[in-house]
Simulated scan of single mutants.
Amino acid sequence: MRRASARKAQAIGVLAPLLADVVDQPWRRAEALVEEFGSIGAALKGSAARVGRIAGENAFAALSKVDEAFRFLLREEIEARPTISNSDELIKYIAPSMQHLVVEEMRVLYFNARGGLIKEESLCEGTTSCAPISIRKLLSRCLDLGSNAIILVHNHPSGDPSPSKSDVECTEAIVEAARSLEIKVHDHLIIGAGRYVSLRSTGVL
Rank of each mutant, 00 (worst) to 15 (best):
A4M: 12
R7F: 03
Q10E: 15
Q10P: 00
Q10W: 00
A11D: 11
G13C: 07
G13K: 08
A16P: 01
L18G: 03
A20T: 01
D21V: 00
V22M: 11
D24Y: 03
Q25P: 00
P26C: 09
W27F: 09
R28V: 03
R29E: 10
A30T: 04
V34A: 02
E36C: 11
E36Y: 12
F37N: 10
F37Y: 15
L44D: 01
K45W: 01
K45H: 06
G46A: 12
S47P: 05
A48V: 08
R50F: 01
V51W: 00
I54H: 00
F60D: 15
L63W: 03
S64V: 10
K65V: 06
V66N: 03
E68W: 12
R71C: 06
R75C: 06
R75Y: 08
E77M: 11
E77C: 09
E79W: 01
T83K: 02
N86S: 13
E89R: 13
I91S: 04
Q99T: 07
Q99A: 01
V102P: 04
V103T: 14
E104N: 09
R107N: 12
L109N: 03
N112S: 08
R114I: 09
G116R: 11
G116A: 09
L117T: 03
S122F: 08
S122H: 03
S122T: 15
G126K: 12
T128D: 06
S129Y: 14
C130A: 15
C130N: 00
C130R: 01
I133Q: 15
I133H: 14
S134F: 15
I135K: 07
L138V: 01
D144S: 12
S147N: 04
N148Q: 14
L152C: 10
L152S: 09
H154M: 06
N155A: 04
N155S: 11
N155K: 12
G159H: 03
P161F: 02
P161L: 03
S164N: 06
K165T: 13
S166T: 14
C170K: 01
E172I: 00
A173R: 14
E182C: 07
I183E: 09
I190H: 09
I190K: 08
I191E: 00
G192C: 03
G194N: 07
V197H: 13
V197W: 09
L199C: 04
T202S: 14
G203C: 12
